[in-house]
């Protein structure tokens, strides 16, 4: 690594020193910031602006010059529903199905995952043997790639898979899990929890360990019951961490795509199609490529995410203060 880096660094030093000397810069801060700012500008801020422009244009050309202005037609198309509760009543029923799926998915996944993470963190915070081992076991799936996670479970759940073999072994019928919409959705929630809960467990465990011991000792003096200690001490003191975890999980949950796409491909039908996959399908996978529509959907997603990110910053601040 250093063998590559050293000559590279020496190479960069030449123009950097030159600029410093020629320009007489006493404070070359901007020089150091430049590469990062160019990248941020090109690949973060400029895209936001273009995204807005795109969402008001039509046709399937990728270049802005090929794209006629269509006003709010993309948004009208997406939002044209006689009832937002029923995707079938919408012009773009696929979009609304994705929205409904995402909302239901996020509620189930975040709720269950934070619940299980809390339970696991509490168990791991007890005086148990081999805590390090157990902690890493729960954390291990976090590192797996989404495609690997999807394949592991797809293989277990397939028609001739291990799960069906076990079911048959105890006398039950085998079942084609991923071909049934409700089961496919349920397993998607499960898979997502399986893959990510270790991360939240870790944060909650850190939160639990940050609670001062003397509070518990005082409670023990007063002979408080374990349940009361949990309700009155652990939960309130863990609340700031819980808040951070909840918001983080929401932000990630809304953007779920990779593992589910590799797991079910969004199917059967559109049972496990979420909002990112809608954007991917409309903008990139299908023909014609409806970039305008995809951009419009992106903007709606962005609004949700900006709100959640502000919530995150707020929760973080609260966590630091409290």
């Amino acid at each position: 690594m250093l063998a590559v880096l050293n000559p590279l660094m020496r190479l960069i030093e030449v123009p950097m020193k030159w600029m410093q000397d020629i320009l007489g810069l006493k404070n070359p801060a901007w020089l150091f910031l430049l590469p990062n700012l160019i990248l941020f500008g090109l690949f973060a801020f400029l895209p936001v602006i273009i995204n807005f422009v795109y969402s008001f244009t039509g046709s399937d050309g990728i270049l802005l010059a090929d794209r006629p202005y269509v006003g709010s037609r993309n948004f009208d198309y997406l939002l044209d529903c006689s009832s937002y509760l029923d995707p079938n009543s919408c012009r773009d029923d696929f979009f609304w199905r994705a929205v409904h799926n995402t909302i239901l998915f996020v509620i189930l996944q975040v709720g269950l995952m934070v619940g299980f993470s809390l339970l696991t963190a509490i168990v791991l915070n007890r005086k148990i043997r081999a805590r390090g081992f157990f902690r890493s076991v729960f954390f291990f799936p976090v590192l797996l790639s989404p495609v690997v996670v999807a394949l592991i479970w797809k293989w277990i759940l397939q028609r001739e898979g291990v799960l069906n073999a076990w079911l048959e072994a105890v006398g039950l019928d085998s079942f084609n899990w991923l071909l049934d919409p409700s089961w496919a959705f349920g397993w998607s929630v499960f898979l997502s929890i399986w893959a990510h809960m270790g991360f939240y467990t870790l944060i909650l465990l850190a939160g639990l360990q940050a609670i001062p011991r003397d509070v518990y000792e005082a409670a023990m003096m007063d002979r408080a019951s374990p349940w009361r200690v949990f309700r009155r001490i652990t939960l309130p003191l863990l609340m700031p961490t819980m808040l951070v975890v909840l918001v983080l999980a929401l932000i990630k949950g809304v953007q779920t795509f990779d593992e589910i796409f590799a797991f079910t491909g969004g199917g059967p039908g559109s049972a496990t199609t979420f909002i990112i996959q809608y954007i991917y399908n409309t903008g990139f996978a299908g023909t014609p490529r409806l970039f305008g529509l995809a951009s419009a959907a992106s903007i709606m997603l962005a609004i949700v995410l900006v709100i959640l990110t502000f919530a995150q910053l707020w929760a973080n601040r609260k966590n630091v203060d409290g």
């Binding site: 700012l37 941020f40 995204n51 953007q255 954007i279 990139f284 951009s295």
Partner: peptide
Amino acid sequence: VVLALVIGTLMIPQTVVLVPLFLI
């Protein structure tokens, strides 16, 4: 201002700018 800009990019995950990112 730069620090604020860096925080600002936190709010722009790749997932919401896929189309323009592809164009650029």
